[in-house]
Amino acid sequence: MSWDYFIYFSSLSVILWTIGAVVAFRTNKRLVPTLFTVSGLIVFFLFILGMWISLERPPLRTMGETRLWYSFFLPVVGLITYERWRYKWLLSFSTLLATVFIVINIAKPDIHNKVLMPALQSPWFSPHVIIYMFSYAILGAVTLIAIYYLIKEKKLTDTNKLMEMTDNLVYVGTAFVTMGMLLGAIWAKEAWGHYWSWDPKETWAAATWISYLIYIHVRLRKGVSNRTAMIVVIISFVILQICWWGLNYLPSAQRSIHVYS
């Protein structure tokens, strides 16, 4: 498998996901949208698998490779929330967001080669990054909900259901952020001798984690409006973006070992 095939696999996936999302609006039965979304996911995963085999290493090293997993996990999260809460629009939004990341990968392809520096050759590498990408997708989806809430706040009739969905997704997202961070700490101990060095990536990962903890704690008691809670969700996601790619542009990160090649 070579990167040249990406456009074909990803286009087919986007078409399948779009059909699934559109059909979801036309019918109350979940079978057909589910089938289309799942087939899109299978096509997309076959590409990831092909890259994995031909690169002889997990495709998780470059920025574009992490975007690949992100585009894969977004429809996964969209599908789970659709099955669980029947929100049709979330399926469309997650497809749209996944498409944006696919387009970035087509327009700005990375250099893919087999080189994997010794520090990354570890059994911790794949779980650490894949868990993080999955959590980023969940937290991306919940950010869409927060934006939707803030725009439509006055017209919403049942805010409880939306808040319940937000709580659930933030809990699951934060759980995975915690796991990704701690697996990273255990790995850092094996590779670099210390579990936490305040490397800029670690610092921003801690900031992201603390920010979602603020949401969780604020929601434990009454006294903070839904609106404020949703704003915390959006701020947290902005911090997450800095952690993911924004820190490459920060003065602190010039010596980081985490800056993607």
Binding site: A175, T178, M179, R219
Partner: peptide, 14 residues
């Protein structure tokens, strides 16, 4: 403990 706790958070939720 935190790893186990994050599993709990994931399974049980809010």
């Amino acid at each position: 403990m935190l790893l186990a706790g994050s599993f709990y958070l994931f399974i049980v939720g809010p």
